[in-house]
């Protein structure tokens, strides 16, 4: 064997070793705003996303110690393969098989959301985890107690030190780590996103569906996040538990029966739909808008044009809408190793 052959073999070995490394270790790029997205609303200045903070947040997100009897994690009701919702459950299913009263929302594009939950009662992502942690039917734990559990854990104090500079775990560090993980759950790799960034184009049917969505849905489901972050009564009728939605946090009569406008992204993974998960299929949702919009208090005016409740849609239009909605499903988001349980 000549000298040249040795060099080639050596180079080959080097490449193999380099490729073997964990890609997430090597290429953690932090929070990057997708080019076609607006500026985020989250205050990154107070909590810049770092590799250490994100990885700690990810570990906490999948940590059962966050629940009273160490059985439930954030990931229990926010499953990545279901776009971080609890697929198949109308309302969230928590500790001791207790049931909540609302459908679990996706952990998705939260940096662009100014307030959280179906009623918008929480205005800061760093405060959000307190709600599911302390809720009797979710994790039934206290943050103070979680911190006590983590403080005596063999790994956590060191991980907190690496991320936030101190082995003493504070409420703020705990919350900010979770925020760093959740902020990185970005869905921006659907076909729609590829079209918007000029990498592909819609089929004829998708393009027609897109036009209909722009005309008939965009009043609430605004691009590119497919929500305008408002709270509206979409005429589904008052639920069995008389959940009054936004009213519960504002006590404003005009907010009764209004709920968050959810995003249209990743609908293929997030059934059932609505605040109480009452619609199991997308067809049922679309049919609701065309046939069964009910005139309850504060029905959104966009759903009652020309004095007729609902949005008139032909079956051909519904088919095209569905074709377009399919382009909002983001396979990368639901399979990304970066945000998966390690």
């Amino acid at each position: 064997m000549g000298k040249k052959q040795y060099t080639i073999i050596l180079a080959f070995i080097t490449i193999v070793i380099a490729c073997n490394k964990d890609v997430t270790e090597e290429f953690f790029a932090g929070f990057i705003k997708p080019a076609h997205f607006p500026d985020p609303v989250y205050r990154f200045a107070d909590n810049p996303v770092t590799k250490e903070g994100f990885e700690l947040g990810r570990k906490l997100f999948y940590e059962p110690r966050l629940s009273r009897n160490n059985t439930i994690t954030c990931g229990s009701c926010h499953i990545q393969s279901s776009a971080f919702t609890q697929h198949g459950h109308d309302v969230s299913h928590g500790i001791d098989d207790r049931l909540g009263r609302r459908n679990s929302l996706p952990i998705m594009n939260l940096a662009w959301i100014p307030n959280y939950m179906w009623d918008g009662g929480i205005f800061d992502l760093d405060l959000q985890p307190i709600a599911p942690i302390t809720a009797h039917e979710e994790m039934d734990e206290t943050v103070a107690n979680i911190i006590s559990k983590l403080q005596v854990h063999p790994e956590y104090p060191k991980l907190f030190k690496n991320a936030f500079g101190s082995e003493t775990i504070t409420t703020a560090a705990f919350m900010k780590a979770l925020s760093q993980f959740m902020l990185m759950c970005i869905s921006s790799n659907s076909k729609y996103d590829s079209v918007k960034t000029g990498r592909t184009s819609f089929t004829v049917e998708e393009a027609q569906g897109y036009t209909i969505v722009q005309q008939k849905c965009a009043g609430c489901h605004a691009e590119p996040l497919f929500t305008d972050n408002s709270f509206r009564n979409n005429g589904i009728g008052i639920g069995a538990n008389d959940d009054m939605g936004r009213y519960e946090v504002t006590l404003n009569e005009n907010d009764k029966y209004r709920f968050r406008v959810p995003s249209l992204r990743n609908l293929a993974y997030t059934a059932p739909y609505m605040h109480d998960g009452r619609f199991y299929t997308l067809d049922a949702v679309i049919d609701h808008y065309s046939f069964t919009v009910q005139e309850t208090q504060n029905l959104d005016p966009l759903l009652k044009q020309n004095n007729e409740p609902g949005i008139p849609l032909t079956s051909d239009e519904k088919k095209k809408i569905k074709a377009f909605l399919n382009t909002l499903n983001d396979k990368v988001f639901v399979t990304d190793k970066l945000t998966a349980e390690q």
Binding site: L127, T142, A144
Partner: peptide
Amino acid sequence: DPAGGMEAG
């Protein structure tokens, strides 16, 4: 510190 529980918090 909002870390207290629902009862005593």
